[in-house]
Amino acid sequence: MSIEKVSFDHLLEEYRLIWNHRLLDTMGKSSKDTLLEAIKRELLDENSHPRIRKSKFEKYFFAIKRVSDSTVSLEAKVHLIKIHNKVMEELR
């Protein structure tokens, strides 16, 4: 199943469940853009103080582990992991 054919509204809800209802900047953005930006910020560790930030590779590992260990549907897990892969490839 293609990432483009998935409901980003639903995936964004699932992402928020995994990351404890994290507040996301949605002002004038689509669900897809909001989700991609949130994942990018997570992988770049922009939610942490600069002195304690981890590498994007460490953050990627922890993000994938958190998604796979979560209680969201298998389908949502697969899509979220694919999106993490896509964002990580863009950051390399």
Score class of each variant (00 low, 15 high):
residue 1 M to G: 14
residue 1 M to D: 09
residue 1 M to Q: 09
residue 4 E to A: 11
residue 5 K to D: 14
residue 5 K to G: 09
residue 8 F to I: 05
residue 9 D to V: 06
residue 10 H to F: 06
residue 12 L to M: 10
residue 12 L to V: 05
residue 13 E to T: 08
residue 13 E to N: 11
residue 14 E to Y: 07
residue 14 E to N: 11
residue 14 E to A: 14
residue 15 Y to P: 02
residue 16 R to S: 12
residue 16 R to W: 04
residue 16 R to F: 07
residue 16 R to D: 04
residue 16 R to Y: 03
residue 20 N to F: 15
residue 22 R to K: 10
residue 24 L to T: 08
residue 26 T to I: 14
residue 26 T to L: 13
residue 26 T to N: 14
residue 27 M to I: 15
residue 27 M to L: 15
residue 29 K to A: 15
residue 31 S to G: 11
residue 32 K to H: 12
residue 33 D to H: 11
residue 35 L to H: 02
residue 36 L to Q: 04
residue 36 L to S: 01
residue 38 A to M: 06
residue 38 A to Y: 12
residue 39 I to Y: 07
residue 39 I to R: 03
residue 40 K to L: 13
residue 40 K to G: 14
residue 40 K to T: 15
residue 40 K to A: 14
residue 41 R to N: 14
residue 41 R to T: 08
residue 42 E to Q: 11
residue 43 L to R: 03
residue 44 L to H: 02
residue 46 E to Q: 13
residue 46 E to T: 13
residue 48 S to W: 08
residue 48 S to Y: 11
residue 48 S to F: 12
residue 50 P to F: 12
residue 50 P to A: 07
residue 51 R to W: 06
residue 52 I to T: 03
residue 54 K to N: 07
residue 56 K to P: 00
residue 57 F to C: 00
residue 60 Y to W: 05
residue 60 Y to H: 07
residue 63 A to Q: 03
residue 63 A to I: 03
residue 65 K to Y: 10
residue 65 K to Q: 09
residue 65 K to L: 11
residue 66 R to F: 00
residue 66 R to H: 06
residue 68 S to D: 08
residue 69 D to Y: 08
residue 69 D to L: 13
residue 70 S to A: 02
residue 71 T to A: 14
residue 71 T to H: 14
residue 72 V to E: 04
residue 73 S to M: 04
residue 73 S to F: 00
residue 76 A to H: 06
residue 77 K to V: 06
residue 77 K to Y: 14
residue 78 V to C: 01
residue 79 H to D: 10
residue 79 H to C: 14
residue 79 H to T: 05
residue 80 L to I: 08
residue 81 I to C: 13
residue 83 I to Q: 03
residue 84 H to P: 00
residue 85 N to R: 02
residue 85 N to M: 02
residue 87 V to Q: 03
residue 87 V to D: 02
residue 88 M to Q: 03
residue 89 E to H: 06
residue 89 E to K: 10
residue 89 E to L: 09
residue 90 E to A: 14
residue 91 L to Y: 05
residue 91 L to N: 08
residue 92 R to G: 07
